[in-house]
Design a protein around this nucleic acid. Structure first.
Length: 137
DNA sequence: GCCAACGTTGGC
DNA sequence: GCCAACGTTGGC
């Protein structure tokens, strides 16, 4: 089991929209970054991730699960891009902001804190447990 | 809205 | 294969 973090601008695709998709989930398309794509290729069905709102909020707002492994991105006209599908699992009790992560010593090596531009990131088990706890889950 | 950081592109 | 130019992201 691996843990991840999915970043989205709520203006483009928000947690509420993700929740509205329900069990069916939604294609995490539109990613045009090799590192992010490679992380998606490494994902397995059942892997869990944080859903993070960038720009507006700058906080973790929910938990998602990978429900389909990487396959061609329907939003791409170039075959090199593919993506997974994710579904909402549960909302957080309390959002965990970027600032919270920066001030928590256990999260000092978190990718979110050090490379905020990467849109799909790996999360370690320790970070996963820490953020979950901070989120009130 | 600005700008720093980063990734990608393309000319050489 | 290098690197300058350019585009994008995302925190502030």
């Amino acid at each position: 089991m691996n843990y991840w973090l999915f970043k989205s601008e709520p203006d483009t695709w928000s947690w509420d929209q993700q929740v509205a998709k329900g069990e069916e989930g939604e294609e995490w398309g539109g990613v045009r970054n090799y590192q992010a794509r490679n992380f998606m290729r490494a994902m397995k069905v059942g892997d869990l991730g944080f859903f993070y709102h960038s720009n507006i909020g700058k906080e973790v707002v929910g938990i998602v699960e990978v429900c389909r492994e990487s396959e061609p991105d329907s939003t791409a006209d170039d075959p090199r891009w593919d993506c997974v599908m994710i579904r909402a699992v549960e909302p957080v009790v309390r959002p965990v902001t970027l600032e919270d992560c920066k001030t928590e010593p256990a999260l000092k090596d978190m990718v979110l804190v050090n490379n905020s531009r990467l849109s799909v990131q790996p999360v370690t088990e320790t970070e996963w447990k820490t953020v979950r706890k901070m989120a009130g889950l």
